[in-house]
Simulated assay, not measured.
Amino acid sequence: MFIPTLRLLAVSSALLVLAACSTRSISDSGYKGEGSSYTASAYAYKGELSPYDILGVDLDRPITEEDIARAMAARKPIQVKKGSSIMLVQSGAAIPDSDMVAALERSYSVATFSGVPAFPAGADQKVVQTLPKDQYAKLFRLAAAKGGYETIIVYWGLLEAGTQSGATKAVSWVPFVGASIPDQFQTMRIRLNMAVIDTRTGQWETFAPSAFTDEALSSSRSRAASDQEQVALLKKQAYDGAAEALARKYGG
């Protein structure tokens, strides 16, 4: 029985099935699919900074109602005025992404600082345990103070991706690209979380800028390139949005 071409197109489109989903850090955003490879280096990803360490929260110390009352009484609004100096840290990265630096430099004087954990997983835990619990937070504040930076901005980010693949490549419902049939949609989302820390007092606030999403269609030959184009696009959008949100929220 003859089945019209349009019917075949409709059927093949309906056979899209969920193939995979994944999450990765913005600081470890290389392609993770088939055929990907990694090269060990001094800048290799070593994990994320702990928000508890960065914000000086001691999980082992008993907290009293008096501690909470004192913290509330000492609380003052945080401002990051246009033109002020900030120290920028990207969790997990030796150097913050250039698009984030560029976005923030439209409003602020920006210096960068390493976000690679000093004590990644597998570090000598005996050494770690001998340090005061707020040492890491004070390390960042001291570095910022010596450089004359009034505010520390630390940010974390996740890239979340889900893919849908055609159940069969017998029929293509999109134009051919060379000799390769585009057969996979990837939907990717980027989410950021930012900590704004006053260098002088150690007071802090966190906020989450708007998330951004993108969809792309690729073939097996173009999968890695398409993935990295999505990463670059979403990072640029998210960083521009984060810089604008920061200026609106803390501009005073």
Rank of each mutant, 00 (worst) to 15 (best):
Q228N: 15
Y108R: 00
S13R: 11
L192T: 07
G30C: 09
M1D: 12
S114C: 07
D67T: 10
S25Q: 12
K249V: 00
L233V: 01
V171T: 02
G122W: 03
G115T: 03
G166T: 13
A211Q: 15
L9G: 09
A42F: 09
I190V: 15
F212P: 03
A111C: 04
L217K: 03
P182F: 01
R223I: 06
G122E: 00
Y38W: 12
G148D: 01
G33W: 12
T163N: 04
F113C: 06
V89Q: 11
K32W: 09
L9I: 08
P175M: 05
E205V: 14
K82A: 12
I95L: 15
P209H: 06
R189V: 14
D99T: 13
V128Q: 00
D60N: 05
K133T: 00
F140V: 06
A247F: 08
G252W: 02
S180Y: 09
A247G: 03
L192V: 03
C21N: 15
V116R: 03
F119T: 09
K46E: 11
T130R: 07
V231L: 08
A170C: 04
L6N: 14
A40R: 13
S50R: 12
L88P: 05
M72D: 12
V80Q: 08
K46H: 07
I3N: 00
R24A: 14
G30E: 13
V127K: 14
P4I: 06
D67L: 00
A118I: 00
A123Q: 09
P182Y: 02
R75Y: 10
L6P: 09
L159Q: 10
V80E: 10
P117K: 04
V57M: 06
S114T: 14
G252C: 07
Y136V: 06
S25A: 10
S172V: 05
T39N: 10
A103F: 03
A211I: 02
T23H: 11
S218C: 02
V154W: 00
K76S: 12
V11N: 03
A216N: 15
Y250E: 02
Q184M: 03
K32F: 04
L234T: 07
L15V: 13
G162V: 15
A167H: 04
Y136R: 02
D227N: 10
M188R: 13
F212R: 07
T199C: 05
A167G: 11
V196G: 06
P132F: 01
A216Q: 15
K133H: 07
L88M: 05
F176G: 06
F119I: 03
C21G: 13
V57F: 02
G147E: 00
S109E: 12
E150G: 01
V177K: 05
R221H: 08
S12D: 11
L8A: 06
I26D: 06
A225F: 08
G157H: 04
R7M: 15
S219M: 00
T187K: 08
Y136D: 05
I3V: 11
G92H: 07
